[in-house]
Amino acid sequence: MSEVSLRPMRAADAGAVLAIYQTGLDGGDASFERTAPGWAEFDAARLAAHRFVAVGETILGWVAVSAVSSRPVYAGVVEHSIYVDPAARGRGVGRALLGALIDSTERAGVWTIQSGVFPENTASLALHHAAGFRTVGVRERLGRHGDRWRDVVLLERRSPLI
């Protein structure tokens, strides 16, 4: 991953972050969503302390988390999203972003990071397993994506420190 650095996501990154998000959505195996939200919605839905971008000459990818619940008992559980520009895939960008996220969340007392991934997204599944996530199970026919039902693999990483 030469000439790539990680840093906290800023509002000035909105255009690049949302463009990478939309590219992932356009691929069809990243999310049930079809259209990336505007920056205000994106920003409001994600915890500011745990958002990072990978930067080379341009922004190459991003990772961010959302709280899974407002209930205090779930304060240490977050759900994350990670998207890497197709031109940067296979260069360790995703692994570096997940590493930064894991470090950040553990320092903040988060004990569980979870995510839902379509089973067809084998690259994402491999990335998550390599980063210490485990498959909890498959939620069959969880939702409709266009005209077909999609399964979702539920992944989680439990902190060994918390």
Score class of each variant (00 low, 15 high):
residue 82 I to R: 00
residue 47 L to N: 03
residue 120 E to W: 04
residue 63 V to W: 00
residue 160 P to E: 11
residue 89 R to S: 07
residue 158 R to M: 11
residue 26 D to S: 13
residue 105 T to S: 13
residue 5 S to W: 06
residue 26 D to I: 06
residue 83 Y to N: 07
residue 106 E to H: 00
residue 86 P to R: 04
residue 7 R to I: 06
residue 103 D to W: 03
residue 116 G to S: 09
residue 132 G to Q: 09
residue 90 G to W: 10
residue 6 L to F: 07
residue 132 G to Y: 06
residue 60 L to Q: 00
residue 23 T to K: 07
residue 32 F to G: 11
residue 113 I to K: 02
residue 110 V to C: 00
residue 127 L to C: 09
residue 114 Q to N: 07
residue 21 Y to T: 02
residue 154 L to G: 00
residue 48 A to T: 15
residue 142 L to E: 12
residue 46 R to K: 12
residue 50 H to T: 14
residue 92 G to L: 05
residue 125 L to Y: 03
residue 5 S to A: 12
residue 157 R to D: 04
residue 4 V to K: 01
residue 27 G to E: 12
residue 59 I to V: 15
residue 90 G to D: 14
residue 54 A to R: 02
residue 12 A to R: 12
residue 91 R to M: 13
residue 113 I to L: 15
residue 14 A to N: 01
residue 140 E to H: 14
residue 117 V to Q: 03
residue 19 A to I: 00
residue 5 S to I: 14
residue 109 G to C: 09
residue 58 T to M: 08
residue 101 L to K: 02
residue 50 H to N: 11
residue 17 V to Q: 01
residue 91 R to I: 03
residue 145 H to W: 11
residue 90 G to H: 04
residue 34 R to M: 12
residue 89 R to C: 08
residue 68 V to T: 15
residue 66 S to N: 14
residue 139 R to Q: 14
residue 138 V to A: 07
residue 43 D to L: 06
residue 126 A to T: 12
residue 145 H to Q: 13
residue 18 L to H: 03
residue 30 A to L: 08
residue 110 V to M: 09
residue 17 V to G: 00
residue 3 E to L: 04
residue 26 D to W: 04
residue 1 M to V: 00
residue 9 M to S: 02
residue 95 R to W: 03
residue 158 R to C: 09
residue 120 E to N: 01
residue 50 H to V: 08
residue 53 V to N: 01
residue 130 A to W: 10
residue 60 L to W: 00
residue 61 G to F: 06
residue 142 L to C: 10
residue 85 D to Q: 09
residue 43 D to R: 11
residue 77 V to K: 10
residue 23 T to Q: 12
residue 16 A to W: 06
residue 82 I to Y: 03
residue 80 H to P: 04
residue 75 A to F: 11
residue 53 V to T: 12
residue 104 S to F: 07
residue 8 P to D: 11
residue 96 A to C: 05
residue 106 E to P: 01
residue 58 T to N: 12
residue 102 I to W: 01
residue 86 P to Y: 08
residue 138 V to K: 10
residue 69 S to M: 01
residue 143 G to L: 09
residue 27 G to H: 10
residue 36 A to T: 08
